[in-house]
Each structure stands twice: as structure tokens, then as C-alpha cells.
Write a protein that binds this DNA or RNA. Structure first.
Length: 391
DNA sequence: AGTCATATCT
DNA sequence: TAGATATGAC
């Protein structure tokens, strides 16, 4: 995946090494192609090479062939300091400001805490009603989430508990970037989330075994069923920064608002420290929606995140879970080691088409929790049909 | 003026 | 890259 839409700037052996190429940012149709790729049936279909070629042509044409209307936006050096008079600075809500804000709300009462009044009570020079309104919006969202979190009422928690055993051990604690604590219990290997060490304020958060970019590329090159590959990975990787995880909700402490909920991500590839890597994946958002997206998209591109219109019934109330904080055994950090590529995995998924995999996804997320919107489902299905991936 | 969705910034 | 903040529509 690259920002570069000019084929001449790509490496000379590009065509011989790359099977799937996506232009950043990723279009919906490209995403659908990628999804199809993951849903390829291994049996009775085109060979890997044929399939790869098919996908390659499909995507490369779209990505390289048509140059989307060139962004002619940027040329605008029109006297930058002319109308700078009002020069509204971005408000930084530091601890002091937050405290004043919270005090104002407390004083006014939550039923009377409107932006205008809050501004008056806070008595901060230059603070605008708009800024307070924006902060109030965020505050309300945060409060709502914290309040909705109650263990173990959520569908996710129930599903997780029943399948994974003792909830007390079913999360990870990240003390610092040098160590990750993992429970010894088994986790569902259906999806693996990507480990991240960038959040220092974590209490516990579900972590998982990510598929690195090289692996993602390798997967594309061999046309291995992505789901098969992922399910073949070991469920834990002591010694690397990656540990296995299923769909495990967790939470962390936010300095201002207390506990906030973290839901797992289903990532494929990617590392912010590796400029050549990218991330394509799914994220189970706190609102219950499943989003797909990618990293590293420049601000001028069509948009950073492709949101797949999945939804969850009762997501507002059901998707938030709070787990008690518990420490579990530690695993020493060692140099990361990539999981082995498994060229052929005997697995039930070989008999599955896209529809069934979607069912599997639904089951993982909690019975009846997540479903595809019909139009997206249809789109995938028909595209898959056209390409001969499903019957 | 308040709220909301979303754009934009960090 | 996800969180913080700004913006504009209703």
C-alpha cells in the first residue's frame, strides 16, 4: 500500500513482487477486494497464481490507471497573515482548566450546566462558549461511557466469560513498554489484535498477536486464506511483544474521567514505527460499530478511514464493559519473532464461504451482537460471485 | 443558545 | 493513529 499513484516511482521489480497493491487511501472497492481475498475458498477454485493475478489486475488498474482528480487545492499562498486578527488559538484543556470545568458543572448542576453558564462560572479570559460546548460534548460522551460500563452485563462479556473461563484473568496488564503481562488461559484465535506499546496510562487492555506487514504481504503473495492463516497462529507468543487475544473488552483509567472502556481491535499488519508498513483492519469501536480502516493517510486524501456500515443492536448500552483490575504473570520481553508462515492449514474454514465467515465474526462478537448491513453484504457477495470466489 | 456530527489538528 | 478540539448545520 502506498501513497504513490505514479507507477514510475515504484520499484522496478514492483510488478514481479507485488500481487496486491492499494493506493492510499483505500477506496471502498479496494477494501472489498481485500475482503474477498480473505474469503477465498481454497478448494475447487482457481489456483493461487490465477487468483492472485485476477486480484492484481483488478486492483492495480483501479489504483494506477485512473488518477483521481488531482488535488489542486493546496496552491493558496494568499497572504497568510492578512486576516489573522482574530487568531483564535486552540484551547488546551490542561488539568487546571479541566478542574475549573468540572467545578463549574458541579456548581451549576448537571441539568443547568450549559455552555454559556459554564463559561461564566469558569471565568477564564478568552474562553469561548464554543470551546466549552465542544468540551462539554466530549465530557458527556465520556461520562456516558463510564456509566454504561458495568461488568458483566454486556453481550461481549457474557460471550467471553462463557467461552474463556475466569474473567479475572482474561485481560492483560501493560506496566511499561518493557513488559507485558499475560494470562495463561487460552484465547480465541479467530482474530488477533495488534499489540501497541504507545499507551502508557493503561491499566489493562486487550492485546493480541498482530500480523506484521511482512506477513501480510506474504499472505497476499501466496493467496493463503487470511482467516486460515490467522487462525493457525499460536495463541500466545511469550518472548515477543505480541501476545494472543480474542475479542476481549477491557478498560483503562483516564486521568480526568476515570475508567474508560477499551474494545479490541482486529488488525492485520502495521506498525507506526515502520514507514513501509501499513495497517488494514477492523476495529470494534466503543459504540458497537465495526470500523475498517488503514493508517498513514495524508490529510488531503479522500479520507483516512473507511467506515464499514456494520452496526450492533443496542450498541449504546451493550458494548461497554469494565473489568476489575488484576495482575497476572509476567512474560519477559525478547526480540520479536515472527510466527511461522503456514502454507496450508487443515482447517474447517476451507469449507466456508464469505457468508459463513461473517457468521463466525458475528459469533465472536457475541450472539446477535453484530450483523452486516444488507447492502454491504450484498456487495461483497456479488463481487465475490463475479470473481468466482463463492458459488 | 444548545446539540450534534464531523472536520481538523496534534 | 487515536484523541482533542474546532466548526458549521440544525
Amino acid at each position: 500500500m502506498s501513497h504513490n499513484e505514479n507507477a514510475k516511482l515504484l520499484p522496478a521489480d514492483f510488478a514481479s513482487r507485488v500481487i496486491l497493491y492499494f493506493l492510499k487511501s483505500m477506496s471502498v472497492s479496494s477494501f472489498e477486494t481485500l475482503w474477498q481475498h480473505a474469503c477465498v475458498k481454497e478448494k475447487g477454485k482457481a489456483t493461487n497464481a490465477e487468483r492472485a493475478s485476477m486480484l492484481y489486475e483488478n486492483v492495480i488498474e483501479e489504483s494506477l490507471g485512473n488518477t483521481p482528480e488531482q488535488t489542486e487545492v493546496t496552491a493558496d499562498d494568499d497572504s497568510p497573515q492578512k486576516n489573522k486578527k482574530k487568531n483564535k488559538k486552540r484551547v488546551v484543556w490542561d488539568e487546571k482548566m479541566k478542574r475549573k470545568f468540572l467545578e463549574a458543572i458541579e456548581l451549576l448542576g448537571s441539568d443547568q450546566a450549559f455552555p454559556k453558564k459554564i463559561v461564566e462560572v469558569m471565568n477564564v479570559p478568552g474562553l469561548t462558549r464554543e470551546s466549552v460546548a465542544s468540551h462539554l460534548q466530549k465530557h458527556r460522551i465520556t461520562m456516558k461511557r463510564a456509566q454504561g460500563a458495568s461488568f458483566p452485563s454486556s453481550q461481549f462479556a457474557l460471550n467471553f466469560n462463557s467461552s474463556q473461563g475466569n474473567p479475572e484473568t482474561n485481560f492483560y496488564q501493560l506496566g511499561s513498554s518493557s513488559s507485558i503481562s499475560v494470562p495463561s488461559s487460552n484465547f480465541s484465535p479467530l482474530f488477533h489484535t495488534e499489540a501497541s506499546t504507545s499507551r502508557s496510562n493503561l491499566i489493562h487492555e486487550p492485546y493480541g498477536l498482530g500480523v506484521s506487514s511482512p506477513d501480510a504481504i506474504a499472505i497476499a503473495q501466496t493467496s493463503i486464506n487470511l482467516l486460515d492463516y490467522v487462525t493457525s497462529l499460536p495463541t500466545s507468543q511469550p518472548g515477543s511483544a505480541q501476545v494472543a487475544s480474542g475479542l476481549v473488552p477491557g478498560s483503562r483509567v483516564n486521568q480526568t474521567y476515570g475508567i474508560e472502556t477499551i474494545l479490541p481491535r482486529i488488525d492485520i499488519g502495521g506498525s507506526s514505527s515502520n514507514p513501509n508498513s501499513t495497517y488494514v483492519g477492523f476495529r470494534l469501536a466503543a459504540n458497537g460499530k465495526v470500523e475498517s480502516g488503514q493508517t498513514g493517510v495524508s490529510s488531503n486524501d479522500e479520507k483516512k478511514t473507511v467506515v464499514v456500515n456494520l452496526s450492533a443492536e443496542g450498541a449504546e448500552n451493550e458494548s461497554l464493559v469494565q473489568y476489575p483490575s488484576t495482575s497476572v504473570g509476567q512474560v519477559a520481553q525478547q526480540p520479536p519473532s515472527l510466527p511461522p508462515m503456514v502454507p496450508s492449514i487443515p482447517h474447517d474454514f476451507e469449507s466456508l464461504g464469505a457468508d459463513v465467515e461473517i457468521d463466525a465474526l458475528m459469533n465472536m462478537a457475541g450472539s446477535g451482537g453484530i450483523f452486516w448491513e444488507d447492502d454491504f453484504d450484498d456487495t461483497i457477495f456479488h463481487n465475490s460471485l463475479d470473481l468466482g470466489f463463492v458459488e
